[in-house]
Each structure stands twice: as structure tokens, then as C-alpha cells.
Computed example of a mutant assay.
Amino acid sequence: MKSSTPQHWHVLYTKHRHEKKVEQLLQEKNIEVFLPMIKTIRIWSDRKKKILTPLFARYIFVKVHSKKDFYDALSTDGVIKSVKFGSDYAMVRANEIFQIKQLLNLEEASDIKVENHLPRSGQKMKICYGPLIGLDCEVVNANNKCKVVVRIESIQNYITAHLPSLYLEPKTFIGNS
């Protein structure tokens, strides 16, 4: 295992629908854990109900400070493995975790979901208002709403949400980038 700094979070892959239980067990082990949750509407034949579901299905993020913490997290009931890309452990930067938390706390954001591919077309934008100010994103116009796609490079996933268009401004490019 490459040594991780406290600035990075490991990504653990859990059993199907075990994210909340794994979060609880990790907290009991005093391991810092982050399980991003979103409100979704579940529809049954006789009712609709708003429930909290994980933003990233089967993923949970842990910040470990030692190899012992890492192996304690891996040995937690419900954890299948640590996510890897090739031979490297998937690591999420602290600023990416912060941005996810900010997005989930933003009242104006709606229809938040995770995509593992980018839309084919879209304009590069920068968020110019609110807690996500300065964040680069890609926008897809759908039904007169701006659908923002935020790339989380560390785990090769994307978050989408609807934000008011007044929150966005065209991204300016410096040089030939």
C-alpha cells in the first residue's frame, strides 16, 4: 500500500446496499468516514416516499492515518475491497470530498445523480456564485435548466445536478489549453 497523507481519502467497495451499515461500523472503529447521501423518491404501487440513498452506489470514503486503520477498514463486515485502478489504490483528494459536501448542501441543486461518462456535447463553464464558486463544470441544457456535470477525477465518476443558470459563467481559457 502506498502511504497516504491525511489529505486523501480511500475508496472502499461494499456489499450491495450495505453502505449505511459499513459507515456505522467504521465510525464505531473511530475511522473517519464519508458516505454522501441524496434524497430520492421511491415509488411503490401504493405510495411514494422520499428516502436517503448513497450518491455513489457501493462506495464509501475513508480517511486513514495508518496502515492499521486501512486494514481495520478493509476487514469491516460489509466491505468487499479497496477500489483500485490498475495497481494503485483509488484516492480522492480532500478538496474533491469538500466539493461533494458543498454540492450536497446546496439547496438550489436538484436532480443530483452520478454518471460514469460525460455527455458528448456541452459547454465548459465555471460556477460563479454560491458555495461551489470557482468550480469548473460542463453544462448540458435540458428542459430550460442547466445540468451541471462535475468531474471527480480520482474515481473516474461524474456528478450531475440542475443549478440556476445565473450561477454559471463561461470558463475562460488562458493560453492554448
Rank of each mutant, 00 (worst) to 15 (best):
E138S: 10
N141V: 10
K101V: 06
A94N: 15
K126E: 13
L132N: 02
G134L: 06
I100F: 09
V92P: 03
L132H: 02
K84S: 06
L132Y: 01
A109L: 07
D136G: 07
V79F: 01
N95G: 05
G130K: 00
Q102Y: 03
P131G: 05
S82G: 10
G134C: 07
D111E: 14
N116L: 07
Q102P: 01
M125V: 00
S82E: 13
Q99F: 07
K81T: 14
N143C: 00
N141E: 11
V139A: 07
A109Q: 09
E107Q: 10
K113L: 05
K124Y: 01
E138Q: 10
S110G: 06
N105D: 12
I112T: 09
I127Q: 00
I112M: 05
L106E: 15
A142L: 10
N116M: 08
N141F: 00
L118M: 11
K145R: 13
R93F: 03
N116D: 14
S121E: 15
V83A: 12
C137H: 04
S87F: 07
L132R: 02
K145D: 08
L135M: 13
R93I: 06
K113W: 01
V139R: 10
D77S: 14
I100K: 03
L106V: 07
L106T: 15
Q102I: 02
N143Q: 09
V139I: 13
A109W: 09
K84E: 12
H117Y: 12
T76A: 02
K101T: 09
E138M: 11
Q102K: 15
K84D: 04
Q99R: 14
D111I: 06
E115G: 03
S82Q: 12
D88Q: 10
A142I: 12
M91V: 07
K113R: 11
S75L: 04
I127A: 01
K101C: 03
P131Y: 01
T76P: 03
Y129V: 02
V114R: 03
F98Q: 12
L106W: 08
D136F: 03
F98S: 13
Q102R: 13
N116R: 14
L103P: 00
I100D: 03
Q102L: 07
I133F: 09
G134I: 08
F85C: 07
L103V: 08
V79M: 01
